[in-house]
């Protein structure tokens, strides 16, 4: 499984990528939308894990740009928002996305990645 992590907190994505690598998940990371889009052009990914709130471009906007280049990619949104209700509404509006709320336990993340890659499970 090839995962792209995008979050403006470098320490978060770099550490998470290292932990996923330890579990044989091929993880790359970016801290801004430009780098993420450049990486998408150069490499194949199965899933992108996108922070919702980032400077310059939010995760929902970035998802649309990635999707234009890679229609088969799947997405998980990562949010720091305490309000699950808000994000469910946001998720419902944009259709088929999945989301996780920070901080997320790695076992939960991996289960979600597997679920999505295997096309199983419920949304949200």
């Amino acid at each position: 499984m090839r995962v792209l992590l995008v979050d403006d907190e470098e320490e978060l994505v770099a550490t998470l990528a290292e932990r996923l690598d330890m579990r044989d998940i091929d993880a790359a990371w970016a801290t801004d939308y430009r780098t993420a889009l450049a990486m998408i052009k150069e490499r194949e990914f199965d899933i992108a894990l996108l922070d919702v709130r980032m400077p310059e471009m939010n995760g929902l906007e970035l998802k649309r740009l990635i999707e234009a280049q890679r229609p088969d990619m799947k997405f998980i949104f990562l949010t720091g928002h305490g309000s699950e209700e808000d994000f469910k509404a946001c998720s419902a509006e944009s259709g088929k996305e999945y989301y996780l709320i920070k901080p997320v336990q790695i076992e939960v993340l991996i289960a979600k990645l597997n679920e999505i890659c295997q096309g199983q499970g419920e949304r949200g």
Binding site: G82, P103, V104
Partner: peptide, 17 residues
């Protein structure tokens, strides 16, 4: 609360690592 969530997320990843 969003800032705190970010700080907790990073602490969580470092502790996990």
């Amino acid at each position: 609360s969003h800032e705190l969530k970010n700080a907790l997320a990073i602490i969580n990843e470092n502790a996990g690592l």
